[in-house]
């Protein structure tokens, strides 16, 4: 079985637009009750124009780009750097590109470069994932 060549792009995933309802529900289910994500009065008192999305919301959606290929069980690590704020009404797109293959801890692994962008092309998150590739399909789907 051939591995997808480095440079292979995993199918992108679009999520949103981010609504206030979504942020409230995410705060509730995640347990992250930081008011800066759900309470516009708090945000304004802090000098911000509005509430903004939890970074971990993007992290969670982004992980699906990778696990649609690897499965949750095949994911070895996921690293994210939150490079700009995700605003209310943003529509985010999560992308992954196979970067390289590694032989690590007795298994074949792929490293995947990750990026999340908003509708205007502004990157909000950059990162990388490492997945176990033994037994995966040739082509990411």
């Amino acid at each position: 079985m051939s591995e997808p060549a480095p440079g292979t792009v995993l199918p992108a995933l679009t999520f949103g637009p981010i609504s206030r309802t979504l942020l409230a529900l995410y705060a509730g289910v995640s347990g992250d009750h930081d008011p800066v994500h759900i309470d516009i009065d708090f945000a304004r008192e802090a000098g911000l124009p509005d509430v903004f999305a939890h970074g971990m919301l993007s992290f969670g959606v982004l992980s699906r780009v990778v696990t649609r290929w690897s499965g949750v069980a095949g994911l070895r690590s996921l690293r994210a750097r939150f490079v700009s704020i995700t605003h209310v009404h943003d529509l985010i797109t999560c992308r992954g590109t196979v970067a390289e293959y590694l032989d690590e801890a007795g298994e074949r692994r792929a490293r995947i470069d990750l990026v999340v962008t908003a509708q205007d092309g502004r990157p909000t998150l950059t990162g990388e994932a490492v997945v176990a590739v033994d037994g995966l399909r040739d082509r990411p789907a």
């Binding site: 930081d34 008011p35 800066v36 708090f42 008192e45 802090a46 000098g47 939890h54 970074g55 971990m56 992290f59 949750v72 069980a73 994911l75 070895r76 690590s77 996921l78 690293r79 994210a80 750097r81 939150f82 704020i85």
Partner: peptide, 17 residues
Amino acid sequence: DFRRLLHGEQHHTYEGL
């Protein structure tokens, strides 16, 4: 101070489900 706090990075290493 949640008025000034941001999440900079997150790195998970998975050893089991």
